[in-house]
């Protein structure tokens, strides 16, 4: 019980600190107005190229692994929205190598707030606003055009799935970022993960063979980002080489993967060797 009270007080303290540090991050970002605007435009352009790519793909193949154009577009929009849910609150994680190499982590360790929290609030990830605009915008459009018969329950499932999908990506990136405390740089690993997620997570993953799909579900669990929850919403769970209940509880996957990533990250902070001064 005492441990629970202590944990709750730490969570409350961190929530308060995150509000303070986020405000500081945004205030600092707004100092550079031109950079602020160009970063947003850059974010939209970067993600927009992916939409263009899928448009071209679907104009050539109107069906991918039995999925029609509007449903693939919906799946892709789910992945973009989940990605936005990763990059908007946690996008500053990308700077972890720099923070470690430059000894910024020393400063984080001296403040009465969580280290992870300070890493992700280090700066306002402006380009992420472009991701959010595109992700939530395209989801709003393609959800209506998909073959899902929307009910309040399905809308709630979709919201949970997007948040869960964001947490899956965050958890995976957090897990990899934790190695920076030992290896000093993990940027290549994290780019590889990001690239793999960007390339494949917006498509029906059963287009790979059974083993390919299973590894993308249990080893590199990007199936939880959009594909598994989308099969649930679209009634396509019969395609899955796994049990249906896995798709039904897929939004919870994010919470589990994020918890694993964060626990590992916090454990790895003890391996931190501050750079010499």
């Amino acid at each position: 019980m005492a441990e629970l009270v202590r944990t709750w007080s730490v969570v409350r303290e961190d929530l308060r600190a995150s509000r303070i540090l986020l405000r500081a991050g945004w205030r600092a970002a707004l100092v550079y107005r031109a950079s602020f605007l160009s970063a947003i435009v850059g974010g939209v352009a970067l993600q927009g190229t992916q939409l263009l790519f899928i448009g071209v793909l679907l104009s050539k193949f109107s069906v991918i692994d039995g999925w029609r154009l509007n449903d693939v577009a919906f799946l892709f929009a789910m992945r973009l929205a989940a990605h936005a849910f990763y990059v908007v609150p946690f996008g500053a994680l990308v700077m972890i190598d720099y923070s470690i190499q430059q000894g910024e982590v020393d400063r984080y360790l001296l403040r009465p707030a969580g280290i992870y929290l300070q890493v992700v609030t280090r700066h306002a990830p402006l380009m992420a606003l472009g991701d959010a605009l595109l992700g939530f915008g395209s989801l709003a459009i393609f959800a209506g055009q998909s073959s899902v018969s929307w009910t309040p329950g399905k809308v709630a499932f979709l919201i949970a799935a997007v948040i869960g999908g964001g947490l899956v990506e965050t958890g995976m990136q957090t897990f990899l970022a934790a190695f920076s405390f030992r290896m000093t740089s993990t940027i290549s690993l994290r780019i590889l993960a990001d690239d793999t997620i960007t390339r494949f997570s917006g498509y029906p993953l059963t287009m790979f063979n059974r083993w390919g799909f299973l590894s993308l579900t249990f080893v590199f669990p990007m199936a939880f980002i959009a594909y598994l929850p989308a099969t649930m919403l679209l009634g396509r769970t019969d395609q899955l080489p796994t049990a249906t209940w896995l798709a039904a509880i897929s939004p919870c996957g994010g919470l589990i993967i994020f918890t694993i990533g964060l626990t590992f990250f916090n454990w790895m902070t003890r391996k931190y060797n501050s750079p010499g001064s």
Binding site: E104, R107, L109, P112, S277
Partner: peptide
């Protein structure tokens, strides 16, 4: 511990650089 100590490292600032 962070609440009971203050620290100044000559080479690195603890302040918010852009503010």
């Amino acid at each position: 511990n962070a609440r009971s100590i203050g620290a100044v490292f000559g080479q690195r600032t603890q302040l918010w650089y852009d503010l």
